[in-house]
Design a binder for these strands. Structure first.
Lengths: 188, 188
DNA sequence: TCTAAACCTCACCCATACGTAAGAGTTGGA
DNA sequence: TCCAACTCTTACGTATGGGTGAGGTTTAGA
């Protein structure tokens, strides 16, 4: 089940990663000390593709610190944190347009506490959703376990022989009905 | 966050659901006794749309028991189980083409035990994946909780004042670093 | 017989999150 | 100076799971 079309990840960079520290524009918004990152470096650092990074920038989720003379994007170090943040929001089930909303609201909020309150709202809602999803997944896991059990034990011992009345390996006396995951496969 | 474009579910059927029992073709593959279902009835019974049912049929996941004189699809009762089965496989993360594969393999397997073995393989793999997902979701839930805690307590009490050295409400002595979900929102 | 509601078969449309390619420019070490 | 590796922009392609008509037919109750 491995994806047959893996995106071309970047090769190991032969160019020196350590850039002259002077370029790190200490005085500016780049709170991160150290060299700036090219888009490929950021991609490698985050496990994303260059295309994904570009997309995030298009959507306003991420902004390069500046550009080189040749218009190469240069990202501050903490862009790595930002990209990971985006990934986590995706894991939480937010779409990129939804993340756009979060960013917009966060940037437009007047005060820091206002921004914090907004985030709290979003996260509280997502926490609830996540808990619901957890519950659903747990149920699915149980169904899978029951189906596996049925497929290996009950079905083989009970149904293959004709004696439905006694099934030593089944805890329940009644002939165990096939779980939905098993029953559904047999229809048609 | 409610979907603005809800698919038109079917209206309550004014037509009598109870069809003449004679139509139920008792002798045939329809193990289910009772009337056959029209596509809309099947849709209502499963919470799917008619279009979805049609799609499942196109993909070979589902087959109507027969057609009426006017080419209306008529499904056996247990088609409901089949559709629910499809839904559960989707919940497990299988795409419709993947479900196609399962169906194909299941139908092509010579013996029942062979088919069971195949299903076991699929389900065992999905069980592992589900457990991994559970673990990931649990982590996310914890991160959300930590972020909510940080946003309501630590951030307000510690960072708004200038005294970083002592934070009465924080259990850890060190100034609590913002969780990724909080830190990421502040970048740029 | 009439009619509303359901159904039929195309067939095109949608959002999401990138993949992929083309053609050209940039970077930096050798 | 040269070249490989990297990056640029533009723009179309892809997969998934249906949604949404259009235009016509069937059903079944009244």
């Amino acid at each position: 089940m491995a994806s047959p079309t893996e995106p071309r990840r970047l090769a190991l960079a032969p160019t020196t990663l350590a850039r002259s520290v002077e370029e790190a524009s200490v005085g500016d918004a780049g709170r991160a000390e150290g060299a700036l990152l090219q888009v490929g470096e950021l991609a490698r650092a985050t496990g994303k593709t260059v295309r994904a990074i570009h997309l995030y920038e298009e959507l306003g989720l991420l902004t390069p610190h500046d550009r080189s003379k040749g218009r190469f994007r240069r990202f501050a170090r903490d862009a790595v944190v930002r990209v990971r943040w985006i990934s986590k929001l995706q894991d939480l089930g937010l779409t990129l347009p939804e993340i756009q909303e979060v960013v917009r609201a966060h940037e437009e909020s007047a005060s820091a506490s206002h921004a914090a309150a907004y985030l709290r709202g979003v996260y509280a809602q997502k926490l609830e959703e996540t808990r619901r999803k957890l519950e659903q997944l747990r149920e699915l896991a149980h169904e899978l376990e029951a189906s596996l059990h049925f497929l290996t034990h009950c079905d083989a011992s009970c149904c293959s022989t004709e004696t439905i009345t006694s099934c030593p390996s089944c805890e329940h006396q009644a002939a165990a009905p096939a779980p939905d995951l098993v029953a559904g496969a047999r229809i048609h």
